[in-house]
Design a binder for these strands. Structure first.
Length: 583
DNA sequence: GCCGTTTTCGGCCCGACTGTTTTCAGTCG
């Protein structure tokens, strides 16, 4: 029973309540509780037994606490079961069809008995939908198109795939003479690990010209809507892009609005309301009172001015998830977040000794060009045959090569050092497949699980904790094993792992590979709150992988992580001192 | 259903677009 499972069930309750046309505030309570639980680092089962219990979670009151407690105790959620029993299996999937909301989904079920996406598709094709009151031929056609798109582009895409595309389009827009400012907004700007669509925002004194240029540029392979201030369509690969153009004086307000998150925006408007102000995508206004038109905006040309009008410090986009950032901004205790420029080392790299494509020297050159002062080469260990794992003999050779390389750098007056590590497998009993000779040759050791991932949570946690306690590993790589959009994290009691890592001074990795980003943002936040050290590494196998570091940084920032906790920001001597202290 | 340097009761974010409507409901972000 993971937090995610609880959150997903609360969301299902919210969806079903919408279909039942229940009180909207009650619905929002369930949605907020679900979001709050997603943003928790700690395990709900631990929170329940801690001081304050489940109700210490903001947005969880008596009612929802009881619903969660029942689920944690029995694996049942009676309220959800009762609600969902009124609808066929697969009914809630209908709500994922863009343009079909809860009201009309409920209507279609009651009128036509439609209980799944398949049934809806068939009903549209047979032109039965148009007979339903409030629906017409046009709605039917739109639904059919929406279903096709849903089948095609189901789900989300990796940030690492989408952010470069967004930035390419922003560059293109900036080059237009009519464009003043252009930026990527939405979840991509917040650095969320996966994104659904891309939101681009532009200011211009001639919006129509910008829209026309974008719509006819060929960037969109399919244009769905091309208005005076808004263009949407699909880029190659089937992803939705929305471009919006606003007046320059609304730039900041629009950027906040389109960056989100939704919950963050709601909190901002609540705060505005409490101060007799109104916030929308055009600016901040004094509340003119019931039914009166808004006057001139008092802020909104920049993001800073909007936040300032609400007596808040500017909040970095990565934090805008309604996870306590507004209170922190109000009280002047927003964290100093880590930045890419703080990174001076990449400590998890694979060379051609195992499954990498670069020589050690090529790795070093790539790192120097990024301004790093040191790197660590960390091949797989023998148990990982398929990835060319290496043992003591090869490690000895690497040691010699690296020592010679460092000597040469020193002779050339170059401030650059290559460290030797290894990424050893944590075996079934928690031991490492690295012998004493290897341990004596390397500068540090990374532990990772690459096998037996389907074991139960207690077993896997036990293995990892044993490895941490052994004192033989200095870092734990991709701790939860997730592959985004592909493989769930293995069951692992992350709080226990973090606790052990703090106690034994082992650094937990944020693996920056875009399909991992593991630790996740919320786990990273929990880890630094508990006092753990982190390491952010690209796990690079080839040249282009070095660029992954930015995704690791974005994830760390979303986890409220500062530079100090991350060993990759430390100068070499400090890193060495720490490693020595652990021997 | 949640929550309180406006409140333990009475509030709870905002605007645009669309289609099917003759004045608005549903959906989205």
């Amino acid at each position: 029973m993971t937090n995610e499972q609880v959150a997903a069930r609360l969301e299902q309750i919210a969806d079903l309540l919408k279909v039942e046309e229940e009180n909207v505030f009650r619905i929002r309570s369930y949605e907020r509780a679900a979001e709050a639980i997603r943003g928790l680092g700690a395990d709900l089962r631990d929170i329940r037994h801690a001081e304050g219990g489940l109700r210490s979670i903001s947005g969880v009151g008596e009612g929802i606490a009881n619903v969660i407690a029942e689920y944690l105790n029995t694996g049942e959620m009676t309220y959800l079961s009762e609600l969902s029993a009124r609808y066929p299996e697969g009914f809630l999937e209908l709500l994922k069809i863009p343009g079909l909301g809860p009201k009309r989904a409920g209507l279609l079920y009651r009128e036509l008995g439609i209980g799944s996406v398949d049934e809806l598709e068939e009903a549209c094709i047979r032109e039965r939908v148009r007979a339903v009151p409030g629906m017409g031929a046009k709605s039917e056609q739109k639904l059919l198109e929406a279903i096709c798109k849903y089948w095609e582009g189901r789900g989300r895409a990796l940030l690492g795939e989408m952010l470069p595309k967004a930035e390419g389009m922003v560059e293109w827009l900036r080059a237009l003479p009519e464009v003043r400012y252009a930026a990527c907004a939405g979840s991509a700007r917040r650095g969320k690990e996966t994104v659904g669509d891309l939101d681009l925002l532009v200011t211009s004194d001639d919006p129509a010209a910008v829209c026309r240029a974008f719509a006819t540029s060929g960037i969109l392979v399919e244009v769905e809507l091309a208005g005076e201030t808004k263009v949407s369509g699909m880029i190659a690969g089937g992803r939705q892009v929305d471009l919006r153009v606003v007046e320059p004086r609304s730039w900041g307000a629009a950027l906040v609005y389109f960056t989100g998150s939704q919950q963050h925006n709601i909190r901002l408007r609540e705060r505005a309301q409490a101060r007799g102000l109104r916030v929308n995508e055009y600016g901040v206004y004094r509340d003119p009172g019931e039914g009166q038109p808004l006057g001139e905006p008092i802020a909104g040309e920049t993001e800073e001015s909007l936040y300032a009008a609400l007596e808040l410090a500017w909040i970095p986009p990565e934090l805008r998830e309604d996870r306590g950032e507004i209170a922190a901004a109000a009280e002047g205790r927003l964290p100093e977040l880590i930045e890419l420029a703080h990174i001076c080392a990449d400590l998890h790299l694979h060379s051609e000794y195992s499954d990498g494509k670069l020589t050690i020297e090529e790795h070093a050159r790539a790192a120097r060009e990024l301004g790093y002062t040191h790197i660590g080469i960390t091949e797989h260990s023998p148990a990982l045959h398929i990835a060319g794992g290496i043992g003591a003999e090869d490690i000895r050779q690497q040691r010699e090569e690296i020592d010679a390389l460092n000597e040469r750098y020193r002779a050339d007056g170059m401030q650059f050092t290559v460290l030797l590590g290894q990424e050893a497998n944590i075996l079934g009993d928690g031991s490492l497949d690295a012998d004493d000779e290897v341990l004596s040759l390397v500068d540090y050791m990374i532990g990772a699980i690459h096998s037996g991932m389907s074991g139960d949570a207690d077993t896997i946690t036990g293995r990892v904790v044993t490895a941490i306690r052994s004192g033989k590993i200095d870092m734990l790589s991709h701790p939860t094993g997730r592959i985004l959009l592909n493989r769930d994290p293995y069951g692992l009691h992350i709080a226990e792992v973090i606790e052990a890592a703090v106690e034994h001074d082992v650094a937990l990795e944020i693996n920056a590979s875009p399909d991992r980003l593991d630790l996740s943002d919320v786990h990273a936040r929990l880890a630094v709150e508990r006092g753990a050290k982190l390491t952010i590494n690209t796990d690079a196998h080839r040249l282009r992988d070095f660029a992954f570091m930015r995704y690791g940084i974005l994830t760390a920032r979303r986890g409220w992580v500062g530079a100090e906790a991350v060993v990759n920001t430390w100068p070499l001597e400090r890193l060495r001192g720490w490693l020595r202290s652990r021997r």
